[in-house]
């Protein structure tokens, strides 16, 4: 996408602009606070030690770029995705995202297990911000893509986890994303469905202005990304052209990483 001849006409402002971004968790906040501790004044623990999940992260992403985020478990990749999706707000620094963000961080997260697959398509689409009339038009296409057949009218508590993921991906594939953030979405279904979902994802990517992909897999990111951010323990170890950053990452970790499965943590 960097070879795009229309590069000169691009908006000079970055689509994603993170400057000195920091997000922390108070260690005690991760545990729930009891009323007894609250009444004795010890519940809030404002002086509790901070765990900086991200700190001092600065990068920019311009239109047409595909940004890969790489790092080991607990590096802060998912927290960065949450910040870019504006699910978490920065505690330090700032992040500016110019455009509408669509996140595929977890498939079928909004499903109601007592409702049928068809009813859950409407529900999940509403969470993703897809209008009802648009989803009605695409309903048959979504059902076909999910390969659920007559199961679509059964409550999804009878579905296997693979069936739920397939349905979740099929709804998400109806998105027309401006800025697409992907995490943990490529390991859906059997090998046949994975290939089909990969093709659909690539077509979504072509329609997006900017794509952010989180992965452990260097070959996968090398294949797709124009730029990369390398995170370790919440700090940025590298940012720049994908090849240079990923070569540094390989040199430091001693291997190219797993095949693309998309299963990520951190």
């Amino acid at each position: 996408m960097t070879d795009d001849p229309s590069t000169e006409l691009r908006d000079p402002l970055p689509v994603i602009d993170a400057e000195d971004l920091g997000i922390f968790y108070r260690l005690q906040q991760r545990r729930r606070v009891g009323i007894k501790r609250l009444l004795t004044g010890g519940g809030w623990n404002r002086d509790a030690p901070l765990l900086w999940a991200l700190r001092g992260v600065t990068f920019q992403c311009h239109e047409g770029e595909i940004l890969g985020i790489i790092g080991s478990n607990g590096a802060g990749k998912s927290t960065l995705c949450l910040a870019l999706s504006q699910i978490l707000l920065p505690d330090e620094g700032r992040v500016t995202v110019r455009g509408e963000v669509s996140t595929l961080l977890s498939l079928g997260a909004g499903f109601n297990r007592d409702l049928s697959g068809r009813e859950n398509i409407y529900l999940n689409a509403a969470f993703l911000g897809i209008p009802r009339d648009e989803i009605e038009q695409k309903m048959e296409e979504i059902i076909d893509f999910s390969e659920l057949g007559e199961f679509i009218d059964q409550p999804i508590r009878f579905y296997s986890s693979g069936m739920k993921s397939r349905l979740g991906f099929s709804v998400a594939a109806a998105l027309d994303p401006e800025i697409l953030i992907l995490d943990e979405v490529l390991s859906v279904g059997d090998r046949g469905f994975q290939q089909k979902s990969r093709r659909r994802l690539e077509s979504m990517m072509q329609r997006s202005r900017v794509i952010v992909i989180v992965s452990h897999s260097v070959p996968f990111l090398q294949e797709l990304c124009t730029h990369a951010v390398w995170l370790e323990k919440g700090q940025m170890r590298g940012f720049g052209e994908a090849k240079a950053v990923l070569d540094e990452y390989i040199a430091a970790t001693g291997g190219p990483g797993a095949e693309p499965t998309g299963a990520n943590e951190g």
Partner: peptide
């Protein structure tokens, strides 16, 4: 996101 509010309420009642 009023669509979401409507779908969630309907889903809750249907469930």
């Amino acid at each position: 996101r009023r669509d979401l509010l409507r779908e969630l309420t309907l889903a809750e009642l249907r469930a």
